[in-house]
């Protein structure tokens, strides 16, 4: 268990929601929080090493650059879970894959440069696995948010 202090929480809030786009973003952040830049950098490095921060960068809008993505689900027998997961996960367009508590027990997302590419990949996958894949492309996006309010709990 890693306990966050107030400074860590301020850092995470800024990093997620208001990360300055500047030549020296950490210096700006440090000034706002009231820390030395060096201490800020070492705290961030620590939170990355502990696995709390996955990465710092940009989130590209796949639709904006013309990519197609779809949620997929399939039913996999207990005995085949590991091998089927390995086959699916090796596809570079598969970004998320979860074992879930439902008759459809494997749920993954596939992103591809076009709809045709995605459907072709899925068709090949169905043949390779001998399984049917349910495809659920988004029709309308109401919300995509990936930042979290850090204010409530300081326990990790």
């Amino acid at each position: 268990m890693y306990i966050l202090d107030d400074k860590d929480r301020s850092i995470l809030d800024l990093l997620q929601n208001d990360f300055p786009l500047a030549v020296q973003p950490y210096l700006e952040m440090a000034n706002r929080i009231g820390l030395e830049e060096e201490e800020l950098l070492s705290r961030i490095a620590e939170m990355k090493a502990k696995g709390l921060i996955r990465r710092i960068g940009g989130i590209i809008d796949s639709r904006n650059i013309g990519f197609y993505s779809t949620l997929c689900a399939l039913t996999v027998s207990e005995a085949r879970i590991e091998t089927v997961a390995a086959t699916i996960n090796q596809l570079p367009g598969v970004t998320h894959n979860y074992l879930r508590d439902h008759d459809y027990n494997m749920w993954f997302t596939l992103t591809a440069p076009s709809r045709d590419d995605a459907l072709k990949t899925l068709q090949e996958l169905e043949i390779l696995l001998g399984l049917t894949i349910m495809k659920m492309p988004a029709q309308k996006v109401f919300k995509i948010k990936v930042s979290f309010d850090m204010g409530v709990s300081n326990e990790l």
Binding site: L12, L15, Q16, N17, D18, F19, L21, A22, V23, K50, G51, L52, I53, R54, R55, I56, G57, G58, I59, I60, D61, N64, I65, I144, V146, S147, F148, M150, V152, S153, E155, L156
Partner: peptide
């Protein structure tokens, strides 16, 4: 930085900053 700003305005970059591993952030 100008280019990143431009890519943000065009919506190519949807968000900018840290991505947390939320299962470890108390959720």
């Amino acid at each position: 930085i100008d280019r990143v700003q431009n890519l943000q305005q065009k919506g190519t970059i949807r968000r900018w900053g840290a991505v947390l591993r939320h299962q470890q952030a108390g959720f």
